[in-house]
Design a protein around this nucleic acid. Structure first.
Length: 425
RNA sequence: GGAGAGGUGGCUGAGUGGUCGAAAGCGCUCGACUUGAAAUCGAGUGUACCGAAAGGUACCGUGGGUUCGAAUCCCACCCUCUCCGCCA
């Protein structure tokens, strides 16, 4: 959620930043805010009078005035009058507040000053590239879904029978590879200082609202209708809410977490795209990194978070590049994002395998997650950052292609061999 | 799923209609005493919104209601705990 106070004090600036990522008119918010504050002022004055009457009546009765006396009756009458007025104002104010809140929840985060201006993914900026020396020499690489099926480790057809299209069953050594990747990534991040969590995979609406998936992107998640529970689209959601509605002591920061979870996405609106393989499934595994940090450190923390994600690709010797997303391609909650794209030889393209975002105080505001600095009055919102480290299915796809041998076998990356107990698939 | 108990500030816990944002204790912060510490004593110690400020308003699980006045009474819901059932 954007800062209403900042918007009020500097509307042109906020509107200008917001315009960089699309059109969103903030005027209605300012109007509602104005109305709301006027109503609040009126209401609290009435409320004060009402409280005063209440106290007076109590005092008089206790000091012996007859409750039936005309003096008390007059006060009661006035109390009723005030109450009648309040009865009109209160619903109005509530309604306006609700409207304001509803709109605010649909406003995306402001792009950071360092985010390149642009309209679409075309305008994203390549920051660096790594691992050219590991680009496979084999010119006849078979797409990962084909090798996978040939090796009997991936089955899409039977998965469609069990569930739907866009699901996969991973079998035998493939399943071992998937597990090895999860374990390998977690071990790395734990060594880097992230504390592992295994959160609930079913999540309530409030949590999805805090991280930014709701209300705007309800179509992207699977819902269990009778329970107000949703299948987690990413571990970012439950972890954002881990300390929701809390006030942490400064000493608690920074908090680093990593988590393995399956992720469930409806992929509404992408029906024609990536219909084959492991790239776009309704269910996939992911290891996520998450940081709760002091605002002063969030930029530096964002850099190291991105490095920690890159470290996984480097250890696996998978060629990748780092893009900085432009203002037009930024996710809803992010103020600044680096995407990591891994080389997929079969399509001759780099494909997103990790997205590392700084959301600053946007999610913390929605989730009311604050910290208190000793000696300073008041509280501040923490900054939240998240990054995939990495999407496991896509990593598997990258390995099945980049490590593919001319004879169709797959070499296992060195660092995974201890986890697999074998060197070839 | 059935039966019962309960949800109060950082914690423990009092409060069943009146001046209660809430006793007391613990904890924490500052100060005094002390060579230092402990102990002791004194002061302070929730959050948010409105307001230039003085100050005001809201919050005792959540939402409604009764009343001049609700932490306290009524209704609905949520959550936690115990027992039974079921189950990995």
């Amino acid at each position: 959620m954007i800062d209403l106070k900042q918007l009020r004090e500097n509307p042109e600036h906020v509107q200008a930043r917001l315009n960089l990522r699309g059109n969103f008119d903030l005027k209605p918010i300012l109007d509602l805010d104005q109305q709301q504050r006027e109503l609040e002022m009126k209401r609290s004055l009435l409320q004060a009078r009402s409280n005063e009457i209440g106290k007076l009546v109590g005092q008089k009765i206790q000091s012996g005035t007859n409750p039936q006396s005309s003096e008390i009756q007059a006060l009661r009458d006035e109390g009723n009058q005030v109450k009648a007025q309040l009865g009109e104002l209160e619903p109005q104010e509530k309604e306006i507040k609700a409207q304001l809140e509803a709109i605010l929840l649909t406003v995306p985060n402001l792009p950071s000053e360092s985010t390149p201006v642009g309209k679409s993914e075309e305008d994203n900026v390549e920051i660096r590239r790594w691992g050219d020396e590991y680009l496979p020499g084999n010119p006849n690489i078979v797409p990962h879904w084909e090798v996978g099926e040939k090796l009997g480790i991936l089955n899409f057809e039977r998965s469609a029978k069990i569930a739907q299209s866009r699901f996969v069953t991973i079998i035998g050594a493939g399943a071992a590879l998937e597990r090895a990747l999860i374990q390998f990534m977690l071990d790395r991040h734990i060594a880097e200082g992230y504390t592992e969590v295994i959160p609930p995979f079913l999540i309530n609406s409030q949590s999805l609202t805090a991280s930014g998936q709701l209300p705007k992107f309800a179509d992207e998640s699977f819902k269990c209708d009778r329970d107000d529970l949703w299948l987690t689209p990413t571990a970012e959601v439950p972890i954002t809410s881990l300390y929701r509605d809390e006030i942490l002591p400064t000493e608690a920061l920074p908090i680093y977490h990593c988590a393995y979870t399956p992720c469930f996405r409806r992929e509404a609106g992408s029906y024609g795209r990536d219909t084959r393989g492991l790239i776009r499934l309704h269910q996939f595994n992911k290891v996520e990194m998450f940081k709760f940090v002091h605002p002063d450190t969030s930029e530096a923390e964002h850099q190291t978070l991105t490095q920690d994600a890159e470290g996984v690709l480097q250890a696996l010797k998978l060629p990748y590049r780092v893009l900085q997303l432009c203002t037009g391609d930024l996710g809803f909650s992010a103020t600044k994002t680096y995407d990591l794209e891994v080389w997929l030889p079969s399509s001759g393209k780099y494909r997103e395998i990790s997205s590392c975002s700084n959301c600053m105080d946007f999610q913390a505001r929605r989730g009311n997650l604050r910290f208190k600095e000793a000696g300073k009055k008041g509280t501040q919102f923490v900054h939240t950052l998240n990054g995939s480290g990495l999407a496991v299915g896509r990593t598997m796809a990258a390995i099945l292609e980049n490590y593919q041998q001319p004879d169709g076998t797959i070499q296992i990356p060195d660092v995974l061999q201890p986890y697999m107990g074998r060197s070839v698939l």
